[in-house]
C-alpha cells in the first residue's frame, strides 16, 4: 500500500473519541502486514510489536492517536431530531447544513445538521452553538427514530479522501490518521531490515478529549523511548507565520521543554544527514499532543515529537501533503535503524 492508500483507508473509517472501533480495526488490519503481535485494548488503543519479545533488544515506541473529533448523540426530540454534544474541539463555523453520518449499533445512517433559513435566523454573522445543533435524520417522531438511534451513538461529518493538486489531499480525520499512516508506513520502510531495536506501535484512543488513551497505552508498552506523531498547523495567509509551519516543507520536529533533548537532537541530525525535509516547531511548554502524557508515564519515557503540517485542523476539509507524511515515516525509519545510542 502506498501512503495515500493507507491514509484513505484510515480516514474512511469512523473513530470518534471513545468509539474508535472502526478506525482501530482498519489500522490493526494494516499493522498485521508487519506483525502478528497486534491487539486492541478495552479503551480502544491499538498495539503492535515488531521484532521479538525475548531477543533482549530495547524497544522504541512509535505513536499516533487513532481517534477523531465528532459528536455524541445525547437526546432524541419528539419530532425525531437528534441533540448532540461535542467530542473534542469541533468547529462551530461549519455546522450549518453539514451532511453527517450517525454511527448506530445497527449501521450507519445519514443526516443533515438542521439550520434555520434566513427569514428566521437572527443574523448571518453569528455561528451556531453546539447546544443548538439538531440533526435531521429524516425521521418524523421520537418513537421511530429511537428504533434506529440511541443516545451515545457517535456522529461524524463524512468527507472521504479526495486528491487536490499534486501530493496534497483533503479528508476528515487526517488529524491524526496522517500520523497513524506515517507510523504504519515507517514499518513498510524498515521491513526486512535487520534493526537494533524492537518496534512497539501505539495508536492511542481519546486524544481529542484530553490525551487519555495515551496515558493508558504508554503504560502498557515496554519502550523507554518514544516518537509521538501528530498534526500541527500549516500556514495560510489569514494566519500568523510565527504560529505555523509550512505545508510541503517536511516533518516538523518538536522542540519543547517537555520533549527529550537528546532524542530531539538526534532527530534533527538524522533528518539533516538523511536529507529528509524538516522544519523546527518550537513550543514553550506542553505540546497539546500525546507526547505530553507519554513523557510522564511510568517514571518517564524519553519522547520526541514529529508533526505533520495540516491546514484547516478540526474541519472535515483538512488538507495534508503526503510528502510531509512520508518525511515523518522516513525520519522514524532512520531513528529505529540507527545505532543503539539513540535509545
Amino acid at each position: 500500500m502506498n501512503i495515500t492508500d493507507i491514509l484513505e483507508k484510515l480516514c474512511g473509517a469512523a473513530g470518534v473519541s471513545g468509539a474508535e472501533d472502526d478506525a482501530a480495526k482498519a489500522a490493526a488490519e494494516i499493522l498485521r502486514n508487519y506483525t502478528d503481535d497486534v491487539r486492541i485494548d478495552a479503551s480502544g488503543c491499538v498495539y503492535g510489536f515488531v521484532g521479538s519479545r525475548d531477543n533482549g533488544k530495547p524497544a522504541v515506541l512509535l505513536e499516533a492517536h487513532i481517534d477523531e473529533i465528532g459528536f455524541i448523540v445525547t437526546h432524541i426530540d419528539e419530532k425525531g431530531f437528534l441533540k448532540v454534544g461535542n467530542c473534542g474541539g469541533t468547529d462551530r463555523r461549519l455546522y450549518a447544513a453539514q451532511s453527517v453520518t450517525v454511527h448506530t449499533e445497527s449501521g450507519d445512517i445519514r443526516g443533515v445538521i438542521s439550520t434555520l433559513p434566513p427569514h428566521v435566523r437572527k443574523d448571518d454573522k453569528s455561528t451556531m452553538k453546539t447546544e443548538d445543533v439538531c440533526i435531521d435524520i429524516g425521521y418524523t417522531s421520537r418513537e421511530s427514530a429511537a428504533k434506529v438511534v440511541s443516545p451515545g451513538d457517535r456522529v461524524t461529518i463524512d468527507t472521504p479522501l479526495a486528491k487536490l493538486n499534486g501530493t496534497r489531499v483533503t479528508a476528515k480525520a487526517t488529524d491524526d490518521r496522517a500520523g497513524a499512516a506515517a507510523v504504519l508506513y515507517a514499518l513498510e520502510l524498515v521491513k526486512g531490515k535487520n534493526i537494533p531495536y524492537n518496534i512497539e506501535i501505539l495508536l492511542a484512543s481519546q486524544e481529542e478529549v484530553g490525551t487519555r488513551g495515551a496515558a493508558i497505552g504508554a503504560y502498557n508498552v515496554s519502550a523507554k523511548t518514544a516518537l509521538a506523531t501528530d498534526t500541527s498547523f500549516a500556514y495560510t495567509s489569514d494566519d500568523k507565520h510565527e504560529d505555523c509551519g509550512e505545508m510541503g516543507k517536511g516533518v516538523m520536529i518538536g522542540i519543547s521543554p517537555i520533549l527529550d533533548r537528546t532524542v530531539t537532537a538526534e532527530l534533527k541530525k538524522l533528518a539533516a544527514d538523511g536529507k529528509i525535509p524538516f522544519q523546527p516547531e518550537i513550543m514553550g511548554g506542553r505540546t497539546g499532543t500525546d507526547a505530553d502524557v507519554i513523557s510522564l508515564t511510568k517514571g518517564g519515557i524519553r519522547t520526541g515529537l514529529l508533526s505533520i503540517p495540516i491546514k484547516y485542523m478540526h474541519t472535515p476539509v483538512e488538507v495534508v501533503d503526503t510528502e510531509d507524511i512520508l518525511a515523518v515515516s522516513r525520519l522514524m525509519a532512520a531513528f529505529v535503524t540507527g545505532g543503539a545510542e539513540n535509545v
Binding site: 468547529d91 463555523r93 450549518a96 453539514q98 434566513p118 479526495a162 483533503t170 472535515p316 476539509v317
Partner: peptide, 30 residues
C-alpha cells in the same frame, strides 16, 4: 445566487474543470 456564509465554511467544492477544492480558514485553535 443567495448563499449564507454559514453553509460555505468547511465545505468541499468542485470546480467546473472537475478539480476539487476546499473552503475554510485558520483553525479554531488560532
Amino acid at each position: 445566487g443567495g448563499i449564507s456564509p454559514s453553509v460555505v465554511f468547511g465545505r468541499r467544492v468542485v470546480l467546473k474543470s472537475g478539480r476539487v477544492g476546499v473552503i475554510a480558514a485558520k483553525p479554531i485553535h488560532h
